[in-house]
Design a protein around this nucleic acid. Structure first.
Lengths: 240, 240
DNA sequence: GCAAATTTGTCCGTATGTATC
DNA sequence: AGATACATACGGACAAATTTG
């Protein structure tokens, strides 16, 4: 077995930790400039190669942002790494992709069901109107469009749904899962027109329930919203 | 401003996509070996520097695993990137760290409240006994110990809680947030003995509710479990 | 136990592409 | 348009870790 403990910690990891420490100690904010690669080399006692590899690691985590020919900056700490990681997991598992998708839908529904009370309580009138407009846009895009407009409207809808509850992390996670779903799901689906209409109707029910201030109806509408997907997942699971 | 569109896509990104494509097309699983750096160089038409940077990006996302002197392998697709990213976000925000912590507690509670019915329904007798043993271990570690045993028992408790519900993603997310919390929270807290006892008692209530098959009591116990933390967060928020 | 072979880790020098002034 | 500063990319060399004979 051997406790695979590298007595010598990898230099690029030391450098990456050093850059993180620099950001923390200097209380930098997203967008603030960082020292150039050459300066980081002498400051951290490493070669360009090691510094560059460390910077690329931090870039993958959105801790650092790199602009060619301009410089290196503090990143925006988004959840892009989660999206890329989960997306690849969904695309990889060749037999279990149904399970991955099912888990993903579970998580998405958990977020919106669990936040139901707070969502209906904090949605403003303008936000409800905006949601309504998005539903009609989905309906219009669905019948004649290429489906692209429908997808964009759906993303905006779910983003607006979790926006007003004053928890940035919750909203970002919810949309990260939406992004992953949008990439992984097409491997399975292919919605019929009636299923699309069913989904649009569910979105409408969600707005209606929110406008009425009825958390129970809201939760039920969320369930109807994910019903077509769950049906598809069950069918795909039955085939294997 | 110009849509900063690099006409030339960065080579390391091309290489990273190429490696991902290689894994997908060959249907590789975590732990399977990948071509050596030299082989990837000629296969993807890039220098070793670019290949190495690409590999480091994929390593940060746990899509690839690298063993010094041995080789490169398919990674285990864990959520380590999410943990590192969120941890840094929590440590960075110097004034808003209270808000980050509050958001984090919200998410953790959402998971365990939202899964209440399924958790209560699917916990086996042996699992309930194991949870009970962990609670007594927390109690023993708390009074005389260094606090390290308490933390480990707490992690094992929450891991076992979400383990049986057949959704890997949900369990991994829940534990990822536990890990982030364990690193970020100490910046604020410092629990008193009475608060520790309160937390241990809440864990006991959780097990009792689960054994009784009572989802309502389970949810209430979860609320009690997070009550001391929320109190601390409110106090810290009031100070600023 | 040792030595050789393989593979990743690190360093250096140079040339090129890009953005800013 | 020219000059400067910076990241990007290449290739070669040597060090360190691991496996195998």
């Amino acid at each position: 077995m051997s406790g695979t403990r590298p007595a010598r910690p990898l230099l690029r990891q030391e450098v990456a930790d050093g850059i993180k420490r620099y950001i923390l100690q200097n209380r930098l904010h997203p967008g603030d400039p960082l020292p150039t690669e050459t300066e980081l080399c002498e400051a951290l006692g490493a070669s360009r190669s090691s510094v560059r590899e460390a910077v690329k690691i931090l870039h993958a985590l959105d801790i650092v942002e790199v602009r060619h020919g301009h410089g290196t900056y503090v990143g925006h700490l988004s959840l892009s790494a989660l999206v890329e990681s989960l997306t690849f997991r969904g695309l990889l598992s060749p037999d279990d992709d149904v399970q991955v998708l099912a888990d993903l839908v579970d998580v998405r529904e958990l977020f919106e069901r669990g936040m139901a009370e707070r969502i209906v309580a904090s949605l403003s009138g303008e936000q409800l109107d905006a949601l309504e407009r998005l539903v009609t846009r989905m309906s219009d895009s669905g019948v004649g469009g290429d489906g692209q407009g429908l997808i964009e409207a759906d993303r905006a809808f779910h983003a607006l749904l979790v926006a007003p509850l004053g928890n940035d992390l919750m909203g970002q996670l919810s949309m990260a899962f939406w992004d992953v779903y949008a990439i992984v799901a097409p491997q399975i689906e292919g919605f019929t027109h009636t299923e699309q209409a069913e989904t649009v109707a569910a979105h409408h029910s969600i707005v209606t329930a929110a406008r009425a201030g009825d958390p129970v109806a809201f939760v039920q509408a969320i369930g109807e919203h994910y019903a077509p997907v769950r049906r598809r997942i069950s069918e795909a699971r039955a085939r294997s």
